[in-house]
Nucleic acid binder design. Structure first.
Length: 892
DNA sequence: GGATGTACGTA
DNA sequence: CGTACGTACATCCG
């Protein structure tokens, strides 16, 4: 068999190459936004892609060490003992690299008690015997011994991993002067500093090569050691045990027991969705394109079944053939498939350029496509099924609920939503992509249309097939969901879907003219401030450009440097306020005012643009948009409408009630997070504070400063308030001092005094983090979980960020749970009592309603009751209700 | 045109 | 060196 006809097996030493990459690329140039270092991953993958392109291997595997310990360290405790601590910036990268490789469907292997090189040696040997052309990629010189006519070593040079030197048999002989299999004997004599294996004193490569060539082998050399003259001869005789030990240790094991042989390592198609997800997280843009390009060149993104699982898992059920159905046939099928409305079916809508295009409906082993042509076939049975409580499993059900509403169809019986369930399982990731879920939970590849192709060569799958996958995902995800999260899904999140859907459909009425007038006045004001600012500095600059501001402030005006940012020095409001104190300049004030009004003007403009034809703004809530359990709002975001300043509140005033209604009602929880802290910590002082019903910060201030509540000064109250709120965020003394603009010592003292009085709060917060470290996750009062893998990260920034987030999550998350439960109760009461008043908006701890004529009293009662009793805590839940003609007025 | 960084609005 | 978000702009890149 000629070499070119042979299959090529590429074997990579993962740790060794990743480590080389780590030192070849600057650590600081490869950091994600949240502080994860990625230089080793980037370097490794970049090298691997080059190899795949150049060598076109048919078979591929990457081997990793499991730990520093192996049978070698047991034989010689100091093996590799000189290696310092692995840099923390490197350690966290290996698991991520393994994830990236998994997404690319590349096999990774490791074996307890062995090193990666032993795995390579085993696979290389078996590959050679099976007729492969073998390429070994490693930065460990021990692998030289593997080289022969069929096995070639690719070894990184000093410059890193981008260039690999090719060692075939001839190259080894040329470089080292011995046959490859003799190289470990040279190494045994010379020693290997990096492995902490001292050799024979005074023996270097030259001598060793001479000896081995002269005697043929280490064994013969040692047998004839008496013949060697001089000091080196004496050293050899005195230290022969070193050489023997070295030789034992540097011999790679060629018969490690492995679950896979070379034939199992055939390259498999990559999963574009999974690759995209992992690479997005690593913020690898160019690499992503390279991977996708290579894959499409090789034609390995096709919907080929993924690599077979190592241990035989149950086989993949065959995808049912999609049948298109309408009319009576569909009616019969629906009734039979749903067993008269008791068995869940998968449901997935299809959207075309002009809206709803069709339905995919599936059972475990059947899938049906229903084209949507309004008014033509008989859809009565379908409509009945959709509107009935007959259970449906869907993905992103809220969007579909709304789409159905738009064509006049009702949807009930949302029994499962795979997007929501997957989010509950891992709330820190986005799960809107069905293909990613299919890969993550079923290990299969759902073909996607290529977004880079104008005219996709590959059609996405039928919605019917997607519906079938959704049904299969339900089982796969439900299996992995703990009881608490399952309850949250069933009792909170799924019932909330139609509630949120209706709120979005309803929208909120906005005073268009009022907004326009406000916008004009803000633009005029912005122009005024800008021109005054330009007068002061004598020229015009772009006030919105941080770069130009830096140039002006720090170079031309020579102001003291502020907080450093990635691109220079900060010009944010806090920094400018600092500057105003240290180096007063009229420009600073004008700039700040300009910022204020332009920001508000932007908000006004954005809102104006999003007013729909019905004169209302319809935001979209993202039910899976946060890691804590809150919902987020977008297009436009109605959860960040200004409230703090007078002008800001005028924007709020533009939100009003629509025709047929008489006012707006707002209801908000007061200090819900502090109440949850009181409940969770059981702190007697804090619980008493809330049960007293007195102003919280005044009460706490009185305790801390040892005065009576009426003697708490505004300054004292401000400090206490900042401290209380900061607690739930993991605030440090440093942060507190910065916020209150007081000395760190004073902040420290404040914290100390606080915890003297409210020690249980501190104990609770500490315990949350400690418990999370053990469990790997935190939990809300209702059992909503959030995993925190970074609590064990060697990267300090990541770890400490995780600690603060872990501390905050049960508090913020429990508050979110409570609000959601209240919303469900209110929605249910409104329906049951057939009220016309409507819930419009949710802003985390606040709800806004549109009050129908004559319903104010009933609505107020419902809202107060449902919000106040959404959870039974050891402190009361206080609800503030207000009404008015607009959002601002109602809030007073 | 898309990604990134900075800044800033809310709870 | 305080949690959780979304949006807009300037800027850089290809």
């Amino acid at each position: 068999m000629s070499d070119s006809a042979k299959p090529t097996l590429l074997l990579v030493d993962g740790h060794s190459l990743a480590f080389r990459a780590f030192y070849a690329l600057p650590v600081d140039s490869f950091v994600t936004r949240d502080g994860q270092h990625t230089n080793a991953i980037h370097g490794f993958l970049s090298m691997l892609l080059l190899l795949l392109q150049k060598e076109r291997p048919t078979h591929l595997a990457v081997a990793f060490d499991i730990s520093r310990y192996s049978f070698r360290t047991r034989e010689y405790a100091d093996y590799k003992g000189t290696r310092g601590e692995t840099p923390p910036e490197f350690m966290g990268q290996v698991p991520l690299l393994e994830e990236a490789l998994a997404a690319m469907n590349i096999r990774t292997l490791s074996k307890e008690d062995y090193e990666a090189d032993d795995i390579l040696a085993t696979l290389a040997t078996r590959g050679k015997d099976a007729g492969y052309n073998v390429l070994v990629v490693s930065g460990d010189r021990d692998t030289i011994q593997l080289v022969d006519d069929d096995i070639t070593l690719l070894y990184p040079n000093a410059r890193g991993v981008s260039e690999l030197k090719r060692y075939d048999r001839d190259a080894v002989v040329e470089r080292y002067g011995v046959e490859p299999h003799q190289y470990p004997e040279i190494a045994a004599l010379v020693g290997e500093t990096s492995d902490n294996l001292p050799g024979i004193d005074k023996v270097g490569e030259k001598t060793a090569v001479k000896w081995i060539n002269q005697y043929g082998s280490l064994e013969n050399l040692l047998a004839s050691a008496d013949e060697i003259k001089g000091v080196v001869g004496q050293n050899l005789r005195d230290q022969r045990d070193r050489a023997e030990r070295n030789r034992r240790l540097n011999r790679l094991v060629r018969d490690v027991e492995l679950p896979l042989g070379p034939d199992d390592l055939a390259r498999a198609p990559i999963n574009p969705a999974a690759v995209r997800a992992v690479f997005d997280r690593l913020q690898f843009r160019t690499l992503l394109e390279r991977v996708l390009k290579l894959a499409s060149e090789e034609g390995v993104t096709d919907a080929v079944a993924p690599i077979a699982p190592v241990d035989d898992a149950p086989g993949i059920p065959p995808t049912p053939v999609v049948r298109t159905m309408v009319d009576e046939e569909l009616a019969l099928w629906l009734d039979r498939a749903s067993a008269g409305g008791t068995t869940p079916l998968g449901l997935q809508l299809e959207f075309g350029p002009s809206g709803l295009a069709g339905f995919g409906i599936a059972t475990q082993d059947d899938s049906v496509y229903v084209p949507w042509a309004p008014g033509r076939p008989d859809y009565a049975a379908l409509e009945r099924w959709l509107a009935s409580a007959s259970p449906k499993a869907m993905h992103a059900s809220k969007r579909q609920y709304k789409a159905l509403d738009a064509v006049g169809l009702a949807l009930n019986g949302i029994m499962y939503d795979t997007m929501i369930a997957a989010w509950l399982l891992r709330p820190s990731f986005k799960h809107d992509d069905l293909a990613t879920l299919v890969y993550d939970h079923l290990g299969e590849t759902l073909p996607e249309g290529d977004p880079n192709q104008l005219l996709p060569e590959q059609e996405g799958v039928s919605p019917a097939t997607e519906a079938w996958y959704i049904l299969r995902l339900v089982d796969a995800i439900a299996d992995r969901l703990d009881d608490g999260s399952t309850r949250v899904a069933r009792e909170i999140e799924l019932p909330l879907v139609p509630v949120l859907g209706r709120m979005e459909l309803t929208g909120v009425s906005v005073d268009r003219d009022g907004l326009r007038a406000l916008g004009s006045s803000l633009s005029a004001s912005a122009a005024d401030h800008a021109s005054s600012a330009f007068d002061v500095i004598g020229r015009e600059i772009n006030l919105g450009s941080p770069k130009q501001l830096q140039q002006l402030l720090f170079e031309e005006l020579g102001m003291p440097k502020t907080r450093a940012t990635k691109t220079g020095y900060s010009t944010d409001a806090a920094s400018l306020a600092d500057l105003q104190e240290k180096a007063p300049h009229p420009f600073l004030g004008l700039l700040l005012q300009h910022r204020d009004v332009t920001k508000l003007n932007q908000i006004v403009e954005t809102l104006e643009k999003s007013i729909a034809d019905d004169g209302r703004i319809h935001t979209t809530y993202d039910q899976t948009g946060t890691s804590t359990g809150r919902i987020s709002s977008n297009d436009p975001n109605l959860q960040n409408i200004p409230v703090k300043t007078e002008v800001g509140r005028r924007i709020r005033s533009a939100f009003t009630y629509g025709e047929g209604f008489e006012s707006l009602l707002t209801a908000d929880y007061s200090q819900i997070e502090m109440r949850i802290m009181a409940h969770l910590s059981g702190d007697p002082g804090l619980i008493e504070a809330f049960n007293e019903g007195e102003d919280l910060h005044r009460f706490v201030g009185a305790r801390i400063f040892g005065v009576s509540p009426e003697d708490v000064t505004p300054t004292m109250r401000t400090k206490v308030k900042a401290m209380s709120y900061g607690l739930a965020y993991g605030l440090s003394a440093f942060g507190l001092s910065k916020q209150l603009r007081i000395e760190t010592a004073e902040a420290k003292q404040l914290m100390t005094d606080y915890f003297v009085r409210f020690g249980a709060v501190r104990d609770y917060l500490r315990n949350v983090v400690e418990q999370a470290r053990v469990d790997g996750y935190t939990e809300t009062i209702f059992g909503r979980r959030r995993p925190f893998p970074d609590l064990h990260s060697p990267n300090r920034v990541l770890r400490e960020n995780a600690e603060r987030a872990a501390l905050n999550s049960p508090i913020q998350g429990s508050a979110a749970d409570i609000m959601k439960i209240a919303m469900l109760g209110i929605d249910s009461d409104l329906n049951e009592q057939q009220l016309s008043s409507r819930m419009l908006l949710q802003v985390h701890d606040e709800l806004i309603f549109e009050v129908a004529p004559g319903e104010l009293e009933t609505l107020t009662e419902i809202v107060r009751t449902r919000m106040g009793s959404a959870a039974q805590l050891s402190v009361p839940l206080d609800v503030q209700v207000g009404t008015g003609t607009d959002w601002d007025a109602a809030a007073h």
